[in-house]
């Protein structure tokens, strides 16, 4: 779609290992909106999100040798790298002191389903399911994934037992997985 370039993942990985600039350009064209979306969701500010995005790409480019294809897909690696940078940023002193900050709790809000910038038709189904998800379950997922809370921090924040955090996270994911049929893929 558009500049979205079709390339097999192993070929893209090869380009990046060889430090071929085409590799990083394709990576950017294919995944920048996904990465930027996650970063923005965490930092909630375009200026800071742009900084984190730059940091993320520098890290991907310079530390690509750390990517281990046997451990997971390329997208998983880059999205986690970006997410961790964004979470570090939100938890840094500068961010907390800055006037732009907001309580981390505010970040745990619902996805703005209406103005979502997703354009992958496959995701429509998933979005529909997320919409149906029990808010209590969704809250746990977002707290863990987007705020980088540990399970005990999440338990404390939500004032629920540790075991409940685990069960809610599992139930939410199982529910989505079952209905979306990811389990049947591959």
């Amino acid at each position: 779609m558009g500049r979205h370039q079709r390339i097999a993942e192993p070929d893209l990985i090869k380009l990046l290992v060889e430090r071929n600039k085409q590799g990083i350009e394709i990576l950017y064209d294919n995944y920048s909106s996904a990465l930027y979306g996650v970063i923005y969701r965490i930092v909630q500010n375009d200026e800071i999100a742009e900084d984190v995005m730059q940091e993320a790409f520098v890290k991907i480019w310079n530390n690509f040798s750390q990517y281990d294809a046997t451990k997971g897909r390329l997208f998983t690696w880059i999205v986690n790298l970006a997410r961790n940078l964004a979470i570090d940023k939100v938890r840094s002193k500068d961010f907390i002191n800055s006037s732009k900050n907001q309580d981390i709790a505010n970040i745990v809000s619902f996805i703005d389903m209406g103005s979502n910038h997703s354009y992958n038709p496959e995701l429509i189904g998933l979005r529909e399911l997320v919409r149906k998800l029990d808010p209590e379950h969704k809250e746990v997922i977002d707290l863990l994934y987007f705020s980088g809370y540990t399970q005990s921090e999440a338990a404390e924040k939500l004032n629920i037992p540790l075991g409940t955090v685990k069960t809610r996270a599992r139930n939410a994911i199982m529910k989505l997985r079952k209905e979306f049929g990811f389990a049947g893929k591959n």
Binding site: S32, S33, A34, Y36, G37, V38, Y40, R41, A49, E50, M53, G72, R73, F75, T76, V79, R83, I111, N116, H117, S118, Y119, N120, L123, L126, R127, V130, I141, Y145, I173, L176, R177, F180, F182, K185
Partner: peptide
Amino acid sequence: TQELIDGYAMLHQRNP
């Protein structure tokens, strides 16, 4: 589970 979470992350896409 990873595939699903990746999909979930994708839902938040935003153009830089």
